Amino acid sequence: MTPNPPLTPLVLVEQALLGSLLLDPSRLAELKDSLTPAAFSIAVHSAVFAAIQELPAPDPVEHIAGPAWLDKVLATASSKTRGVDAPYLHTLIQATRGLGHLPAYSTLIADAHARRRLHDRAVHLAGIARDASFPDPVATALRAAEDLRAELDAWSPPTTGVRAPPRPDPPATASQKAVDRAADDELHLIASAVAHPEEAAALRAWIRADEDFTNPIRAGLWKSVTALLSRHAAVDPLTLLCEAQHHGVLADADPRPLLATLSQPAGDLTYWAAQVLSRSVLATADRTGRAIAHYAAEATLTPTQVSLGSHRALAHFDAVRVRWQHVTAPPPAHRETVVARPGPRSTAPRTRTPVR
């Protein structure tokens, strides 16, 4: 059965490259190990390329005289996957274009393969960020982000002279249970900050209202806390409510329910900060994964744009990760300073060498 792959531009490029190698196997050396069988988009092409790599190149004169080497390619490739037959090898040879374009075809195929791998890693990261079943979801997401970064760093298209693509705006997908949990954590953080302004002053640089809070009202309340702290003003539930009006919070709402919440702090401030930032890390990992998956799958973007956009998305994720690590890092171990004490004074008589 002759394979009938969809004739996308990439498939046509793969056919042209394979056809060139079938016509002149010695040209495989021009690729300099830039391609592997896995780089091809369909199994038939992977099998044919693997066979060309495995078989010794034929004598040029004998290759022109007869199809003996092509028969070996057919036998080797068909043993690796179904669908490889003599008519399709003929199709590949007919697809050959300019023999001098082999390096360009190789680059196109390698870039497409890198985009597919990047897409798969990005989808994996986004999936992990939304999966609450892991014992330590933040650590799992960080490992997945490093795997994604390694995949991106292994691919190096040119990065000059091209602007990065616009950031996509993926929709939020949090469940109602997750939304409610986030609201509780954020309110507990704000209430604890009001109760312990000295500790809150040390944390305000590491928690960003516009990035780490899931609701604009609670984000406005945190901005109000940091504004009071920056002015060294008195911080309590009432001063916070008055400050919040300057940030557009509680314009016409009854302040008494919020006043009651702010007046009953519970738990450690650092604990609630870690909870809020952990959720921010996972939310950013989700957005980062989906953004990079979008870049990698978007055919209108060049490889350079995909690379630039992906690096930018990971840089934003790194900024959130650094803030989370600062807040959750264990305090430095207390080290006792050992003060050297003078030993017992010697009671032996002192002797002095006479001067001659």
Score class of each variant (00 low, 15 high):
152 L>F: 05
257 P>M: 02
231 R>F: 12
153 D>K: 07
153 D>I: 13
197 P>W: 06
175 S>E: 03
182 A>I: 00
251 A>G: 08
156 S>W: 05
239 T>S: 14
204 R>E: 11
214 T>G: 13
205 A>R: 07
225 V>N: 03
231 R>K: 12
175 S>F: 05
199 E>R: 14
231 R>L: 11
215 N>C: 12
177 K>A: 14
169 D>R: 11
169 D>M: 04
146 E>C: 03
167 R>C: 11
222 W>T: 12
174 A>Q: 11
257 P>L: 08
187 L>C: 06
193 A>D: 01
170 P>S: 06
230 S>D: 09
153 D>Q: 06
247 H>F: 14
252 D>I: 07
205 A>V: 07
158 P>G: 14
158 P>W: 05
207 I>A: 04
158 P>A: 15
155 W>L: 04
230 S>V: 03
214 T>V: 15
184 D>I: 15
162 V>S: 01
189 L>R: 04
253 A>Y: 02
189 L>D: 05
152 L>A: 01
226 T>Y: 01
186 E>Y: 09
205 A>D: 14
219 A>W: 14
238 L>K: 09
248 G>K: 04
198 E>K: 08
219 A>D: 07
209 A>P: 00
168 P>E: 13
203 L>K: 05
252 D>M: 04
237 P>Y: 00
178 A>F: 09
218 R>T: 15
220 G>T: 10
150 A>Y: 01
146 E>A: 10
209 A>V: 02
203 L>N: 00
197 P>N: 09
185 D>V: 03
168 P>K: 09
193 A>K: 11
228 L>G: 08
229 L>H: 13
245 Q>K: 14
254 D>N: 15
181 R>V: 10
195 A>E: 02
216 P>D: 13
154 A>N: 14
181 R>D: 11
236 D>V: 03
180 D>V: 14
242 C>V: 13
154 A>D: 14
150 A>T: 06
173 T>Q: 10
155 W>A: 05
225 V>M: 03
187 L>P: 00
149 R>I: 05
221 L>G: 09
203 L>Y: 00
242 C>W: 07
254 D>W: 03
241 L>R: 02
242 C>L: 12
205 A>S: 12
179 V>F: 06
149 R>V: 07
186 E>S: 11
244 A>M: 02
198 E>Q: 10
191 A>Q: 03
255 P>A: 05
150 A>H: 03
230 S>L: 01
178 A>E: 11
174 A>D: 15
169 D>Q: 08
247 H>V: 12
170 P>N: 00
218 R>Y: 14
159 T>A: 12
148 L>I: 05
165 P>N: 02
178 A>P: 01
170 P>H: 07
212 D>P: 05
212 D>F: 07
149 R>F: 00
202 A>R: 05
241 L>P: 00
255 P>H: 05
215 N>H: 13
